[in-house]
Computed example of a mutant assay.
Amino acid sequence: MSLRAEKLRSPLAVKFVSCVRGPLRDDHVRVRPPGCVMPARYMRDARRILDLEVRPEDVWIVTLPKCAMYLPYWEHVIPFWNMRQEPHVLFFSYEEMKEDLALVVRRTAAFLGKPITEEMVAQLVDHLSFDRMRDNPAVNNSSAVEHIRKEHQLEPAASTGRSFMRRGVVGEGGQRLSEGVQRRLEHWTEQRLQGRGYTGPR
């Protein structure tokens, strides 16, 4: 799988990036696939990890401190946590969306200054649900997963009953990771958050 970066051309994307504060305020590019706007440094890290072969027992390590695409996790979260009170930033967590997606929809509409009816809220809650997202090929990464599996001569994920997205249940990692791995993960989290004033979900 290959990635390419394009300069931002959309005035809206350029305006959004101009509002970014902290260590993430550097050059941004549009990455294809899938078309997301990311810091330019993403390309450097993504290329380093894209062809990394991972054993099943190593997956948790790559998913936490070493994954280049979305991590180091807390170094990604903390700058936005620190920006959460700024007038142009709306911060909420996955846990909040799972607990009360309708409330998050209403908060987002209010933040954007858009009127919204209860009928619209219900439609958005259905459209934005995890189940809808998991079944939507435009966002569920199924094409990327199948492309990578094909490159490595693996059978299609669908035929093995696997998918990029599982159930989207908060806390499911505790059922899948061993107690030893969970302890190491908790220790790593405590180290990353020490003295940083973060009080949100973990």
Score class of each variant (00 low, 15 high):
residue 4 R to S: 06
residue 5 A to I: 09
residue 9 R to N: 08
residue 9 R to E: 14
residue 10 S to L: 07
residue 16 F to K: 08
residue 18 S to Y: 03
residue 21 R to F: 03
residue 21 R to M: 03
residue 24 L to W: 11
residue 32 R to D: 14
residue 33 P to V: 08
residue 37 V to G: 03
residue 40 A to H: 09
residue 41 R to P: 00
residue 42 Y to S: 09
residue 45 D to R: 14
residue 46 A to D: 10
residue 52 L to N: 01
residue 55 R to Y: 02
residue 63 T to E: 12
residue 63 T to V: 03
residue 65 P to R: 01
residue 66 K to H: 12
residue 66 K to L: 15
residue 69 M to G: 04
residue 69 M to P: 01
residue 70 Y to V: 08
residue 70 Y to W: 12
residue 71 L to R: 13
residue 71 L to K: 14
residue 73 Y to W: 11
residue 74 W to H: 15
residue 80 F to W: 15
residue 89 V to A: 03
residue 90 L to Y: 02
residue 92 F to M: 07
residue 92 F to K: 00
residue 94 Y to I: 08
residue 96 E to N: 13
residue 101 L to K: 05
residue 101 L to T: 01
residue 104 V to Q: 14
residue 105 V to R: 02
residue 105 V to F: 04
residue 107 R to D: 11
residue 107 R to V: 02
residue 112 L to K: 11
residue 114 K to H: 10
residue 117 T to W: 07
residue 123 Q to S: 12
residue 126 D to N: 10
residue 129 S to A: 10
residue 129 S to P: 04
residue 130 F to Y: 14
residue 130 F to K: 02
residue 136 N to S: 10
residue 137 P to Y: 03
residue 137 P to F: 04
residue 137 P to R: 01
residue 138 A to L: 12
residue 140 N to M: 07
residue 140 N to G: 09
residue 144 A to P: 00
residue 144 A to Q: 12
residue 145 V to F: 12
residue 148 I to Y: 03
residue 168 G to C: 08
residue 169 V to K: 12
residue 186 E to V: 11
residue 190 E to W: 05
residue 193 L to M: 05
